[in-house]
Nucleic acid binder design. Structure first.
Length: 102
DNA sequence: CGAATGACTCCTT
DNA sequence: CAAGGAGCCATTC
């Protein structure tokens, strides 16, 4: 199941982001946004899963401060071209749409 | 099986 | 915009 979520997260294109709810929905788990966070938490350190492209519906980083994860995620996103406006990401522009790549 | 928890989301005030 | 409450699903004890 986690693999299911990781798979969806893995196909998120760079420079774009998706919300937990969106990932859950595309993973076939509508309403399981929490499951996404849970799965990402179980995500191995050596995984190639761009978990940093997953954020909450507020366009903000949900990672708990103290683990430094919030910092890493922001750094990675900015490195991919994602901008933090007012401390958050404008989902209106960066929200990932499956199949909308081309 | 029952109760508690969590990288969540939506609605109302 | 900020804060509070309820719903959601799976994992863990």
């Amino acid at each position: 199941m986690n693999q299911r979520i990781w798979q969806v997260v893995a196909l998120i294109p760079p420079g774009k982001v998706a919300t937990y709810g969106d990932v859950a929905r595309h993973a076939g788990l509508p309403g399981a946004a929490r499951r996404v966070g849970y799965a990402l938490r179980q995500l191995p350190a050596g995984s190639r899963i761009p978990w940093h492209r997953v954020i909450n519906a507020q366009g903000r980083i949900s990672l708990p401060a103290g683990t430094g994860g919030e910092y890493t995620q922001r750094e990675r996103l900015e490195a991919e071209g994602v901008a933090f406006i007012g401390g958050k990401i404008p989902l209106r522009s960066y929200r990932w749409h499956p199949g909308a790549s081309t």
